[in-house]
């Protein structure tokens, strides 16, 4: 078990976005979290990545309590995340965006003299990452000028470049066309079995195509966890979530 969430609570004003939330992610699985809007998916992600702190409860990553750790520290023990709202550096090229991640992985950046562009090793590593996500040809394209689908791919590539043990993906297919979405699913499928991925996803086709395990998050807690088949046939889930979708 790579990630264990115990009794997580988080409230905003009077609204409980996480209530006694328990979650377990096994190594090398793709674990999807689905659920209706307002169910607390984004809040859970924010607490896992360190952007917000829980009111109570514990987050254990590789048997280590990471609840008090800030985002940047979590990255260095192997927990990387990508955002639902594309958060690439728009004015930099695709390659430069990835180079930032590579640079982060190589220890501190209090280096004031040697130009990054002169580091062939870093460049090669970054190019490899881009190639893996199918952006190899766009390395020198300014990120902000590429298509939405490519920007989403870059978004995920930046997290991948951190070589995480657990990759958190917040709606990777957000705002994508059907085609782009299919491309993203293919890309994520390639990583299946090698990487541990925890993803939030709205597109249920994508979820059932990708996930080994699916958890349904309703009203701040996990309603059910299981394989796609188990989830689909679970009456509680049908009532709370899938029912309204298919109806």
């Amino acid at each position: 078990m790579i990630l264990k969430v115990e009794n997580l609570n988080k409230s905003f004003g009077g609204i409980l976005a996480s209530r006694n939330l328990d979650l377990q992610v096994e190594e090398h699985e793709v674990h999807a979290i689905v659920g209706p809007n307002g169910g607390g998916k984004t809040t859970l992600m924010a607490q896992l990545s360190g952007l917000s702190k829980p009111d109570s409860g514990k987050i254990l990553f590789k048997d280590r309590n990471i609840t008090p750790l800030s985002t940047h520290k979590r990255v260095h023990i192997g927990l990387a995340s990508s955002f639902q709202i594309t958060s690439i550096i728009q004015s930099m090229t695709m390659l430069d965006n990835i180079l930032l991640a590579v640079q982060s992985l190589q220890g501190h950046s209090y280096k004031f003299w040697a130009p990054v562009s002169g580091d062939a090793g870093m460049r090669e590593t970054a190019l490899n990452v881009l190639e893996n996500v199918g952006l190899g040809r766009q390395a020198d394209t300014v990120a902000g000028k590429s298509s939405h689908g490519e920007q989403r791919q870059l978004e995920i590539a930046m997290a991948l470049a951190l070589e995480p043990d657990l990759l958190l993906l917040d709606e990777p297919t957000s705002g994508m066309s059907k085609e782009e979405s299919g491309e993203m699913v293919r890309l994520l499928k390639k990583m299946k079995g090698e990487k541990t991925i925890l993803l939030i996803e709205h597109d249920l086709d994508a979820v059932f195509a990708l996930a080994d395990t699916t958890s349904v998050l309703v009203d701040g807690r996990i309603l059910a966890t299981g394989t796609a088949e188990q989830i689909r046939s679970n009456p509680k889930v049908q009532q709370a979530y899938l029912g309204e979708e298919t109806a």
């Binding site: 990255v75 990387a80 004015s91 930032l100």
Partner: peptide, 25 residues
Amino acid sequence: HARFGRVIIGCKHNEKRMQALGFDT
């Protein structure tokens, strides 16, 4: 153009992302 400068420029454009990349911004 050095690593330090790249981090600083990144912080200007998207500080949250820089943190998510592991930088103590």
